[in-house]
Design a protein around this nucleic acid. Structure first.
Lengths: 339, 339
DNA sequence: TTGAAAGCGGTACCAT
DNA sequence: ATGGTACCGCTTTCAA
């Protein structure tokens, strides 16, 4: 592998000049720059990111901390972030904390220390120790889906999602409405499930509709669990005419149960979700769309903007920003007036 | 941030000894090691991966080259790989080539040069130039879902998947069978679609069943396109009694179309998929399961095993391995005998 | 068992 | 506009 010295010799200048020329800095004559570029190309030279990092104090790597990397929402975020920061010549280092019933790895000193220039935290509830670690490291941090006092964040108005869905259903005339997805807050899901369910509750109360305890199901934020719960729910004597779900995955689980039980949608049952995952369109699911890629992009931009230059960290970043992106009700064929 | 020198001073030994002690090398007395460990812990010391890389010639980073990072199959692979190589103290650098209609980025010298210790290529068709780049770099490479002469690979018996599904359907007595997912080979999907369709063709021919051209649909390997195609297919006067799909996503698209058209599954139509994505279970889809996480794990292990120690690359890696993992027919409620 | 010192391949400051 | 040269923080001989 050619090194900067090889290029310097090949083009008859010093390594300092090569470095400047290749990075597009000024104070390099055009003719020199051309010579250097030619030599570099000729030698197939690529600067060692490692050496550059050591010397500059900048790794050009962003750590993406996530509880899952294989679920739709998270992989979409990760993919979006990757594209967003790549435009700034940065790379993504995947830090999957592997959320599971038995807990998860934690954000520790040695996980991110000296390894990344900044951290993106995706929909996670960090404990105080973890917050402290990130502070001590002095790393720029941007979070998605949850805010912390000291850091900027990007998200959507969570309660606005189910709010729109519930209003839509109520507006169609439903009064027997069930909810799927009331997960207890924990590190895995953050506050989102609670916020969404809260909105459901509020809309029904405002409409003077009682929230029936037996029509509120937890599920585990997966389609399979939602299907199981819905099967039971829809087999009872008294069944709802509509089900509002906290996510499309769960809504599709409910839809699967309905199909299995021979119920017609929306004839016998209306169903709504949140997210607008690709399958939602396929199944004609009414949902509230969030633009996850846009969230990822904004988060990436925010983080890039807060990156200091070189070894000197920016002093306390200015006021943390709170960006909330809009969502949009998408009415498809899974909702209609009650029979 | 504490450096190795701080630890050395704090524990009263040289940096060389600290380095040895911290990395668990021998030739360090137990008492010295204890002192060093204590000092390191006290100072919250974490060795700079950057400096270590520069000095050792090893980055402990694996580049994962993928055409998509947000589709189920790929994000599951990526997640699995991350876990697999983390056990070896390596990290994943995500290299999303962003496959799209207008092409994709390519594996170039500066994308992977000096940046990673090895490369994992996920279900992609590399062009000769890209192969050359990886060869020139002398990087260990392991591929998933496609084999190259020089590199080890992990995959499943692709034709075996649809083979099992088609035999199952034929065994149930179906003779009017359609296929969804005959994508032309291209860099985005590799050879998988062709192999799967080939199996379909073979099974039908062996059973003496003609493959009707108008019952073979391309779709774009997405549920939405499959639903569109199926809607058209199932609205014709003559319609198949079974649809074999090249993936679960597409199979679910067909299912969505069937539900929409009021067809009963499997009464009016049997459907099979491939993969066993989570939603497949939810919808009771008969499919051929592949263990994507196991594939990822094996690929990770293979790559770790082929990593040389330090600056010296292993001479030509031994014989490339070809690992094929088994698949399994999972019969659920989307298939039954024809009416 | 321990330490001294030469790199690793760049960056960035200071001269010229 | 260009070159000289201290670092950056760790690993790895080689001596002691």
């Amino acid at each position: 592998m050619a090194s900067i010295l090889d290029v310097a010799q090949a083009s008859g200048v010093s390594v300092a000049t090569v470095s400047r020329a290749l990075r597009g800095l000024d104070r390099v004559s055009e003719s020199t720059r051309a010579k250097v570029l030619a030599a570099a190309r000729e030698l197939n030279y690529v600067a060692s990111p490692t050496a550059a990092s050591l010397a500059s104090g900048r790794t050009r790597i962003i750590g993406v901390v996530t509880p899952f990397s294989d679920r739709w929402y998270f992989s979409t975020l990760i993919s979006g972030v990757e594209k967003s920061i790549r435009d700034h010549a940065h790379h993504v280092l995947l830090l999957d904390l592997e959320e599971s019933a038995s807990g998860r790895r934690s954000v520790s000193h040695d996980l991110v220390g000296k390894r990344v220039d900044g951290v993106l935290v995706l929909n996670m509830v960090l404990d105080p120790q973890e917050e402290q670690v990130l502070h001590d490291l002095g790393l720029p941090v941007v979070t998605v889906g949850r805010s912390y006092d000291a850091w900027s964040s990007v998200g959507i108005d969570e309660s606005g999602t189910v709010d729109a869905a519930a209003r839509h259903v109520v507006g169609l005339g439903h009064r027997d409405i069930a909810y799927v997805g009331d997960v207890a807050e924990d590190a895995a899901y953050g506050e989102v499930p609670g916020q969404r369910f809260g909105a459901f509750r509020t809309v029904l109360e405002e409409a003077g509709i009682p929230v029936r305890r037996e029509w509120v199901r937890t599920s585990d934020w997966t389609s399979y669990d939602a299907a199981r719960d819905a099967r039971e729910l829809l087999s009872r004597e008294e069944r709802p005419t509509a089900v509002v779900a906290g996510s499309d995955e769960m809504a599709l689980g409910v839809l699967a149960a309905a199909v299995e039980l021979g119920l017609s949608v929306p004839g016998d049952l209306s169903i709504t979700g949140v997210d607008d995952i690709p399958m939602a369109q396929t199944f004609g699911l009414t949902t509230v769309r969030q633009d996850v890629r846009a969230v990822a992009e904004r988060a990436g931009d925010l983080l890039m903007a807060s990156l200091g230059t070189g070894r000197s960290r920016p002093d306390e970043p200015p006021v943390p920003e709170r960006i909330l992106l809009p969502t949009e009700l998408v009415v498809r064929r899974s909702t209609g007036a009650p029979a």
